[in-house]
Computed example of a mutant assay.
Amino acid sequence: MKRIITLVAVLSLLLCAAMSAQAADIELAKTSTLEQIVQRGTLRVGLEAGYMPFEMTDKKGNIVGFDVDMVREMAKAMGVKLELVNTAWDGIIPGLLSGKYDIIASGMTINQERNLKVNFASPYIIVGQTALIAKKSADKIKSWKDLNQPGIVITSKLGTTGEQAAKRLFPKATYKSFEMEDQAMLETMNGKSDATVYDLPMTSIFYSQHGKDAGMVFLDEPFTYEPLGWAINKGDPDFLNWLNNFIVQIKNDGRYERIYNKWFGSNDWYANIQ
């Protein structure tokens, strides 16, 4: 008899614990950014319009690109409107943390340092660092490993993984940072630096549009592994779950392939960019 009473007591405690956990999950779901987006009727996306072909401004002043088309599909799947918030790169994570927008979709590389501040959904594309070499330096730089020597000047964009890679992998070289990636690449094209380290496909686009005719050499084999992901605030499992499922579905129903081919399959879009 005592065993039966004890068993009933244990079952009652387990039931209460389960009900308490379920109630906590429901309360957590109510505070999710996903719920706020649906209630507000708008998905607010933080990005910096200057990273071709992920996000950039066309001749009409509209922000377009691979990331833009992806989040447009995201908003459509949520049944809400899309609001793009153009933000300087060095303030893009603080903007998310302060609630300026709901998500960052701006070609952001997933790394440990950023992951301390934000959560990332599963990668939606993989890129890596490549190098554009000035015409004057082509004879002495045949591989990315040749960049790590005294007297070599390397450029990249401030606050990016290109900058991090240049400092980490080429400590013997001199590094110069620029506010925008095209400034860094023009510095090399004009012979004022030896190389620019930056993300593929941005380097590929610059080379095909400008660098090839200027005699630059493009070391197009990436020497880093860089998965790009959408960043959201920590402590939001519901939103993270939704985003990961969205990535799986869009990659398997033809939408991802259509968007990818539009922006990476050709350079036809470049004629409409400022």
Rank of each mutant, 00 (worst) to 15 (best):
N233Y: 01
S208H: 14
I63H: 05
E221W: 10
K60Q: 15
P53Q: 07
Y256L: 07
R40F: 04
Q183H: 08
T31V: 09
P171W: 11
Y225P: 09
I104T: 03
I133D: 03
G215F: 11
K59N: 08
I93P: 10
G151W: 09
K76L: 10
V118E: 15
R114Q: 08
D69F: 03
S32P: 06
M70L: 15
A165K: 02
L240Q: 12
P237F: 03
R258N: 01
F223I: 07
D102V: 00
A105N: 06
F178V: 03
Q249I: 15
A165R: 01
T196E: 12
I103W: 00
I125G: 01
V248P: 10
L14F: 13
R114I: 12
L243S: 03
D268G: 00
R258T: 02
G254Q: 02
N272W: 08
T196R: 07
K172Y: 02
M52T: 07
G151A: 06
F178M: 05
V68Q: 06
W263N: 00
N245L: 14
E27K: 11
S12A: 15
G254A: 04
D146T: 15
F170Q: 06
M180R: 15
E163A: 04
G41Q: 11
P237S: 08
W89L: 07
A29G: 06
V71K: 03
E27P: 06
F223A: 02
N233C: 09
N62R: 13
I259C: 04
G162H: 01
L116F: 09
S156T: 05
D199R: 00
S266E: 02
A105W: 07
A121F: 14
Y207G: 04
S193H: 04
N272K: 12
Q183Y: 09
A77Y: 13
L186A: 12
F170N: 05
S20F: 15
D25M: 15
L82W: 13
M1S: 13
T87P: 05
N272Y: 12
Q112K: 06
R255S: 12
K59L: 06
K140R: 15
I103S: 01
G162Y: 02
E48S: 12
A17L: 13
L15S: 10
K100G: 08
A24L: 04
S106D: 15
G61E: 04
L15G: 09
Y207R: 10
Q112W: 00
I37F: 10
L200N: 11
D268A: 03
Y101A: 00
W144M: 10
D213M: 08
D182H: 14
F120T: 09
L243G: 03
K59S: 07
K135T: 07
P94A: 01
G151L: 09
L219T: 11
M202T: 14
M19I: 14
Q209F: 11
V64T: 11
M108Y: 12
L243E: 04
E179Q: 06
L116W: 06
D90H: 13
S177Q: 05
S193V: 01
N267L: 14
F239Y: 14
E163S: 03
P222L: 02
A184Q: 04
G65F: 01
F218M: 14
E35T: 11
W269C: 01
A9E: 10
A17E: 05
G99R: 08
Y225R: 08
N111L: 02
D67A: 07
N252D: 10
K192Y: 10
K157T: 08
S106F: 00
K81C: 08
L11Q: 11
T87D: 07
W89I: 02
L186G: 09
G215E: 13
K142S: 10
